[in-house]
Design a protein around this nucleic acid. Structure first.
Length: 587
RNA sequence: CGGGCUGUAGCGUAGUCUGGUAGCGCGCUUGCAUGGGGUGCAAGAGGUCGUGAGUUCGAAUCUCACCAGCCCGACCA
């Protein structure tokens, strides 16, 4: 048991002005964290307890599925990253660590970086330690601090520069084995989030810089989330970056050409909207939108309907390491016109050989015959037929889905909701094992690449997500398993030996039933103590004081309920122990 | 990186337009009273007004630069 006066729980009446959302305010007001700088937080004693409890639940569930815990360094030699498959993409988010101390020649590149994740460390380790199929599969994990130079840290622990993460890495001999490892982790994740009292949904996700063949994100639905989840009642769910819709029906037949391509003058008309307006009156869904990107230094085109937006994450499927929108200066020499008059009609592109490809979204097939830029400033082309006139390297899905579009599984309207990403699992395949040469020998003396998966849980973000999902106007409502303490004993008369004795006796009873107990022995007014009790949100509150003791009772109240139950002193220990046991069993 | 807003005591803020003694609430300290939902009264302590330069007899206030934070966007494993 812990006495309030002997730990440190600095509660606040008011929230600091920079806290915007409920969970961030409550983290500060309940004394769980204090801010050092943007995205940098000190875990105060009670916050640390929650963090440790969540970590332990996570450890339990990963262990149950065969995870093996280890601890890798926070500081990585930069060579591990330079040698890996994503140095150019990842270097931007990594903190560099210069030499400590003076002297010694300094190289232009940093010698060390702070680890944002550990594929580049674990893969070489496994490469040198495991060479036989007999030692596979293995799934190594750790729980520790990660460092990422977030462009815009915000919402407290939600997006921080330094945060606590559980990261696991599986190594399998076969692809099927890797899929099985993936599903074990998926199971562990569901179990873990449930035990944290969190409602999560697993959605299909983009693999992004991580690479790999497929992935799921674990999302906590919340209006303050950073991600959009697209879902339908038929059970489809995906991150918006990844989500598709059944816009183009199966077996759709493109329209035949409606006439010869015809150039027409559109002076000063450089937007989709301008072309929609009179005198041109071309609906946006009949226009081809031509976007130019630079992929690893080479320009490429993306063609969409005028009414659609590009989902840049989907360009990841094209295989470029880095891509960005091209500048007007880069566009003109290649296409022959400035943005606003661009198109991809055969023969109009000034320097087609410079292009790394012309990639079209499936939905342009719905246009059939449409209007697009002529690659000549001030001119557009009409009667442009997808089949006849465009030289498409590859059709794929590049557009951002919209609410209400048909679900790709069922055709029902898709819905979109905000969510917080608390976990992400990837089936990586051989991207890293290939780059680092992580091979094993099978029973026929043949060498093969190991098949990998990687799995992350934002432990500190999970902590805040729990608060975001579970609070009311008075404060936090901790789920049983992650509460810093499960039982709060409010001693109304800490100066009174009898009351203090009873408080201690009740604490021992609750403890022996398996609860962590905090005793509020502060010499504060009752109102202060009750307000703080609600604010810090421990699940079960017991009130001991002179008034009740004269009656021969103590009071028992759940944080989730309004009702206060009077418990006769004689039965109190038994009733409390039962309450603790049944709460623990339900959690 | 672009747009907007804000920096005044540990926290929340007024004062800035119109330059002239830096104010209030919470918290903190001390005392008395009170004692079941942030109690009352009284007495205190606590400030480089984000930083630097400039204008001025005089700058929290006006000007410029910089820094930091927040929001929106971009970006984001």
């Amino acid at each position: 048991m812990k006495y309030w006066s002997q730990t440190f729980i600095p509660t606040l009446k008011e929230s600091p002005a920079d806290a915007e959302i409920a969970s961030h305010k409550l983290l500060l007001r309940a004394g769980l964290v204090r801010k050092l700088g943007g995205g940098l937080y000190t875990f105060m004693p009670s916050g640390l307890r929650v963090l440790q409890k969540i970590s332990q639940l996570c450890r339990d569930e990963i262990d149950r599925e065969g995870g093996i815990e280890l601890a890798m360094p926070f500081i990585h030699p930069v060579d591990n990253w330079v040698d890996g498959p994503r140095w150019s993409a990842a270097r931007e988010i990594m903190y560099r660590v210069d030499h400590a101390g003076a002297g010694k020649g300094r190289s232009k590149e940093p010698e060390f970086v702070l680890g944002p994740t550990h594929e580049e460390v674990i893969t070489p380790l496994v490469k040198s330690e495991i060479t036989s199929y007999r030692d596979l599969p293995k799934n190594f994990y750790q729980i520790g601090t990660k460092f990422r130079n977030e462009i815009r840290p915000r919402y407290g622990l939600m997006r921080a520069r330094e945060f606590v993460m559980k990261d696991a890495y599986s190594f399998d001999a076969t692809d099927e084995g890797a899929t099985e490892s993936y599903h074990k982790m998926k199971r562990a994740y569901s179990a873990f989030f449930t035990r944290c009292g969190l409602k999560t949904i697993a959605v299909e996700a983009d693999t992004g810089v991580m690479g790999g063949s497929f992935s799921h994100e674990f999302m906590v639905p919340a209006p303050v989330g950073d991600d959009d989840v697209v879902y339908s009642d038929a059970g489809y769910s995906a991150n918006r970056e990844k989500a598709t819709s059944g816009l183009v029906p199966l077996g759709f037949q493109e329209a035949a050409p409606s006439g010869a391509v015809e150039e027409f003058a559109t002076p000063g008309c450089v937007t989709i909207a301008a072309l929609e307006a009179a005198p041109y009156s071309v609906p946006a869904n009949q226009q081809f939108k031509t976007l130019v990107f630079m992929g690893d230094g080479k320009p490429f085109l993306v063609i969409l309907r005028g009414c659609d937006e590009v989902e840049e994450a989907k360009l990841g499927s094209l295989g470029f390491q880095l891509w960005r929108q091209a500048t007007p200066e880069e566009i003109e020499p290649v296409l022959g016109a400035k943005p606003g008059s661009l198109g991809a009609v055969k023969g109009t592109i000034k320097n087609p050989d410079a292009l790394a490809g012309v990639f079209a979204d499936h939905a342009i097939r719905l246009i059939g015959n449409g209007t697009t830029g002529a690659n000549k400033d001030g001119f557009h082309l009409r009667h442009v037929n997808v089949d006849r006139d465009l030289a498409i390297t590859k059709f794929s899905d590049f557009r951002r889905v919209r609410e209400g579009e048909p679900c790709p599984k069922s055709g029902e309207p898709l819905k979109i909701a905000r969510a917080i990403e608390v976990g992400h699992i990837f089936k990586l395949g051989t991207k890293y094992s290939e780059k680092f040469g992580a091979m094993y020998t099978d029973d026929k003396k043949q060498s093969h690449l190991m098949v990998m998966g990687c799995y992350g849980i934002g432990i500190s973000r999970t902590l805040q997500a729990v608060i975001e999902q579970s609070n009311d106007a008075d404060g936090i409502i901790w789920p049983w398993n992650v509460a810093p303490w499960q039982v709060l004993i409010v001693n109304m008369d800490p100066q009174d030996a009898a009351a203090s004795d009873v408080a201690k006796k009740l604490a021992l009873a609750a403890e022996s039933a398996g609860a962590d107990v905090l005793i509020d022995d502060r010499n504060e007014r009752p109102g202060v103590k009750f307000k703080d009790a609600d604010l810090i949100g421990l699940p079960l509150r017991l009130t001991v004081g002179g008034r009740g003791l004269k009656e021969g009772i103590i009071e028992m109240k759940w944080r989730t309920e309004k009702e206060v139950r009077k418990v006769p002193l004689a039965e109190a220990e038994t009733i409390i122990a039962d309450a603790v046991r049944s709460a623990a069993a339900k959690a």
